[in-house]
Design a protein around this nucleic acid. Structure first.
Length: 362
DNA sequence: TACACGTGGAC
DNA sequence: TGTCCAAGTGT
């Protein structure tokens, strides 16, 4: 690990802590889930925002957070909600296991903790959807506990400050140890947020603004002129392509046939336009869900997931009779006015758009 | 440990 | 246009 807590180091760490907190007090951003200076944040707001912010930008989360706290002002309200409504409100945010775990977590907090989040990092870690980062973040930010959350921002700030050149993910233990060393006894929540704000502003991935940074005086990456190369990362693997065909059935009254995906796996529990399995090579023709006048739609849907890129051809059947039966139990007809709030992931909204349907959001 | 898991924005 | 990345977790 290479970072020893010598008396000399402790002095520089104390200086770092003060400089960072002073910077935070001068540059604190106001965010919907963040408490006013000197006040304690609402644990429900902290938890909800931390789940939404996992691998997701602040700009994207904003409107979703506001909608959620309006629909469900407290954890008890969320626990009592139908899962499908929660998935519908989450649609478009991605990583849909987060929404299912969010709902499960709310139920556990109500059932096992009387509707109050546990304050202890270890107890938080036992809740669905809460991992090491989020447990430490909630403990520090909502409850002022001495905890050191390490997210992507803090990995960058800490690896630069301590000159950790070993590539991720192997360097994670060293970075965690260094983050603990850096965390002050007082204001651990403000300190964690200040490091994240630093990582999101001055200590950016490219072109960091080191001269303006409160950590630059003791920053090894800056001193060595290698800040913008840290943290080093292992090369990534290429993203394969996959191909499929979607069948967009539209009834005379405008209702659209949608299918519920299996609980687990990709887009688990979300709705989809019925489609063929996604194959490694383009298929000539798939099998429609039922017999009708299927017409090919010109163009195709392209969508990039984390680990593959998907191309979907779309066939459309218009003007189907009201009495058209659903092909199986996972399918349902969804009226036009309900499409906007349905639990439709973005890739399926692209399919509807290509088919001439505009799934408006509320 | 390594991979599965979404999406949109920046460059 | 392609690549990288964003307040990670579950398995």
């Amino acid at each position: 690990m290479g970072v020893m807590a010598t008396p000399d180091l402790k002095k520089t760490l104390l200086a770092d802590q003060k400089a960072v907190l002073d910077w935070y007090d001068r540059n604190r951003r106001t965010l919907p889930w963040r408490a006013m200076p000197g006040q304690r944040a609402d644990p429900y707001h902290v938890w909800l925002s931390e789940i939404m912010l996992q691998q997701t930008t602040v700009a994207t989360v904003g409107s979703y957070f506001m909608r959620f706290i309006k629909l469900w002002p407290g954890v008890t309200d969320l626990a009592a909600a139908e899962l499908d409504l929660v998935l519908g409100a989450w649609a478009g945010l991605g990583y849909y296991a987060r929404a299912r775990n969010l709902h499960a977590c709310a139920k556990v907090v109500v059932r096992d903790f009387g509707g109050r989040f546990p304050e202890d990092e270890q107890a938080l870690l036992g809740l669905p959807g809460i991992g090491p980062y989020t447990a430490a973040a909630i403990a520090a930010i909502a409850f002022d506990r001495h905890a050191s959350p390490v997210d992507g921002n803090i990995e960058r700030v800490v690896s630069r400050r301590f000159g950790i050149t070993q590539p991720l993910p192997g360097s994670k233990p060293a970075i965690r140890a260094a983050a603990r060393l850096l965390t002050p006894a007082a204001r651990p929540g403000d300190f964690a947020q200040s490091l994240m704000d630093l990582g999101a502003s001055l200590c950016s991935v490219k072109r960091p603004h080191c001269p303006a940074c409160p950590l630059s005086r003791n920053c090894q990456g800056f001193a060595l002129g290698i800040a913008d190369t840290l943290p080093a990362k292992l090369a990534k693997i290429a993203r394969p392509d996959r191909f499929g065909t979607a069948y967009l059935a539209i009834r005379r009254d405008g209702a659209v046939l949608l299918r519920r995906r299996p609980e687990k796996g990709l887009l688990g529990g979300m709705m989809e336009v019925p489609s063929t399995p996604w194959a490694d090579k383009p298929a000539d023709s798939g099998k429609p869900p039922f017999k009708a006048g299927w017409q090919p739609v010109s163009g195709q849907v392209e969508h990039v997931f984390t680990h593959f890129r998907l191309f979907l051809k779309v066939y459309c059947a218009h003007d189907l009779p009201q009495k058209t039966a659903v092909p199986d139990a996972d399918c349902q007809w969804v009226m036009p006015e309900a499409i906007g709030t349905a639990a439709l992931p973005t890739v399926m909204r692209k399919v509807l758009t290509l088919g001439g349907i505009r799934p408006l959001r509320p």
